[in-house]
Simulated scan of single mutants.
Amino acid sequence: MTNIELATLDEIPQTGNVQSNALYASRLQFNRNKFTLIIVEKKQITLGNLVGSGVFEKVFQGTVKDLEEPSPMPVVIKMLRSNASSQQITEFFQEAKFMSHFRHTHVLRLLSICIDKDSPWLILELIEVDLLTYLRESRTFQPSDSQALRLQDLLAMCEDVARDCCYLEKLHFVHRDLACRNCLISSRNRENRIVKLGNFGLTRDIYKNQYYRTRGGLFPVRWMASESLVDGIFTSQSDVWAFAVLMWEIMSLGEQPYSTRNDFQVIEYVLSEGKLPQSLNYPPTLYELMQH
């Protein structure tokens, strides 16, 4: 296909030496020539409905033709606004670089990238909705409704995310921002539903009210382990802490962790070895696992 170009990771433009805030690669152990990014032209893309918007980014549904098949392919298009800084553009390309490494059923797939004159566009597989929204929407269902979430459904979601985390750990990646807002579901249909980890690096803009701002940037303190709060240390073990909080989110159908405390109080509470309470949907054995 003459209108599709392959670019290796080293050929993607850079505008500075900025480390991604949401996904930290502690050690890259990849064949850099093995994974390439498909470059598509803007004329191949048709923008549809706006599905998300923040101060620095916009997310659309749309289609791309001549990507993996001749017919238009439904996708999600993520783009920076025209007023994005050079640092934000660099982090945008960093996200593309990181995602180009991932090949896993439970990790959102980056299909291609469009190098627009104003800003780059990321072309991602189409996913219905983020997990946080899905969980909160499910609160309106009656137990007799076919779409009502059962305990087995919630446990399956936890297992899907655990598979994501295991995969990233094997690649020596530390995510640093595990939370339901950063997971997506492939379908509302129980038989086809898969939870995927996605949004590596850009969700802080849309969900900025769930991050605590300091001079060093925005931090998801309600999902952070004590060593991350005190010393800024992020490891696979701090991801395990965040995964436990994510489990609590799932079992509580999307409640905000430590909802009765402000950010300062959350930090003090966690540093004093405080833990999240057991929610109504939490089986005792699962809650015990979460506390570990």
Rank of each mutant, 00 (worst) to 15 (best):
R136V: 00
R163A: 09
H175S: 14
R215F: 04
V59R: 05
R215K: 01
T15Q: 13
I185R: 09
A96D: 06
N262S: 03
S20A: 15
M251N: 06
G48Y: 04
G254T: 05
Y134G: 12
N199S: 14
E125S: 11
E5W: 02
S259K: 10
D116F: 02
T90A: 15
F93K: 06
V221Y: 01
E191A: 14
L23W: 06
F60S: 01
P72D: 07
P143W: 03
L124S: 05
K43M: 10
L50Y: 03
T203Y: 06
M73V: 13
Q142D: 10
H104A: 15
A242E: 05
N281K: 03
V40E: 07
E191L: 07
V107E: 09
M73P: 02
A242V: 01
G16D: 03
I194R: 09
S186I: 06
L271Y: 00
G48M: 04
L197K: 04
Q19Y: 06
Y24D: 13
S238E: 04
C165V: 12
I4M: 08
M224F: 02
T214V: 02
T105H: 13
K97W: 07
L197D: 03
L171Y: 05
A225R: 00
S119R: 09
P284N: 02
T260Y: 03
Q14H: 09
S146K: 10
L47R: 10
Q265L: 00
R139E: 05
F56K: 02
L253I: 02
S112R: 10
R81T: 15
A156C: 10
E5M: 13
E169L: 12
L6H: 01
R176V: 14
E159W: 11
G54I: 06
S82R: 06
I45C: 04
L111V: 13
V76G: 14
S119V: 14
R222D: 06
L132N: 11
D164K: 07
P74M: 07
F243S: 09
S187A: 12
V161A: 15
Y167N: 05
L135A: 11
L23M: 10
L168R: 04
R190P: 12
T140Q: 07
D118A: 11
L132P: 08
E11V: 06
F264S: 00
Q19A: 14
H175T: 12
H175F: 12
L110G: 08
A162S: 14
L132V: 07
C158T: 07
K78V: 03
A244V: 01
N262H: 01
M73R: 07
T90I: 09
R190S: 13
D263G: 05
I185H: 08
F219C: 01
R188C: 15
I45K: 03
I12N: 13
V174I: 15
H172K: 09
E137Q: 12
G232F: 02
S279M: 10
P277R: 03
C183E: 05
T90W: 04
D153K: 08
R163G: 02
Y258M: 02
D116V: 00
Q291N: 11
F30Y: 08
T8H: 12
K58G: 06
Q19G: 12
L6N: 03
D239S: 10
Y134D: 07
F219A: 01
D118M: 11
N21I: 09
R109I: 14
L37I: 14
T140F: 00
V40W: 01
T203C: 13
I38G: 10
G16C: 07
V240T: 00
T46V: 14
D118I: 08
C166V: 12
T133M: 14
